[in-house]
Design a binder for these strands. Structure first.
Lengths: 170, 170
DNA sequence: CACTAGGGTTAGGGTTCT
DNA sequence: TAGAACCCTAACCCTAGT
């Protein structure tokens, strides 16, 4: 139908966050016009950006009320929107299968799984190496922000901490 | 505990249908406020209207055999995305008994279903690079933005951030 | 007029009740 | 087991204020 709901993709979400980092909260039109993000966000309006940011913010602190019994692991499959937004980096051959269910760090096998943000499991090694490289090359970068960036992608992957501990050596 | 579940009466159902003919599908609040129907529907919410309409539509779409639909009110729409929403309805004068059948005139857009290509991890590397670049270039500016960004990320696994912060020194 | 902030509404998946 | 009624909330709309 005319305007079906357009679910935000992970790429769009990240682009928005990066846009906010670069231009600031509330600079929706600016973010949208930035060629760095427009290729990803061109389907969105400034108002869309604002609304999405609001949703993200709500999730960030509290969405306490009803996170109660979320049983059942549900496969939330997201149908990629009409091709075209594929211009980006092709890199990574994702040998890894998609991870559908992300579980909290400490979960016993019969515990309830909390459906986390749907994220794909791309090569962790790749990410880590990339991050390390970037960090080294950009001595002045804000390490906290970078850590946050990585966290956002992998916050729920089990075993992440230990993996990182093993890989990161400075 | 709670509401005993209110079955829809024939009058309510009738009013809903009339409301849709008059105001269009999706104008639930408008229908509800219309004095022509509010006296009948005052017990219902806009969401109730929407849900009821969905039920009616499912029935009409032949899933379950039932009264056949003779009349149809069709949503006419046009553009994908970014366009104006306007939904025009063409109300064909009902003979008298009417079941409203809502079906998209044209192809549905969700027929396009790309079989689970792993969702892109395409831009992650790029995003990381962008973030780093931005942070670097902006130096001290946009502290507000950065703070907002970090704050937004804060719900994520705290262990990782602190660990990275500790390991990566600048 | 263009944009943003914030409240309001809708769409659609999910859940509960019968 | 099905289906009607109801819930949740991301996505989208409306509009005052700047």
């Amino acid at each position: 139908m005319g305007a079906p709901k357009q679910k935000w993709t992970a790429e769009e979400e990240q682009a928005l966050k990066a846009g906010v980092v670069k231009h600031g909260v509330g600079k929706w039109r600016t973010i949208l016009k930035d060629p760095e993000f427009s290729s990803v966000l061109y389907l969105r309006s400034n108002v869309d950006l604002k609304d999405k940011w609001r949703n993200l913010s709500v999730m960030a602190n509290g969405w306490s009320s009803r996170e109660k019994s979320r049983l059942s692991v549900r496969r939330v499959h997201q149908v990629p929107r009409q091709g075209e937004n594929s211009m980006a980096i092709t890199a990574v051959a994702p040998s890894d299968e998609e991870i559908v269910d992300v579980k909290p760090l400490q979960v016993s096998r019969d515990m309830v799984h909390i459906p986390g943000p749907k994220r794909s499991n791309l090569s962790l090694d790749k990410l880590i190496m990339e991050a390390i490289t970037c960090l080294k090359e950009n001595g002045g970068s804000n390490k906290t922000a970078i850590a946050a960036f990585i966290e956002d992608q992998y916050w729920a992957l089990p075993g992440l901490k230990s993996m990182l501990s093993a890989k990161l050596k400075f």
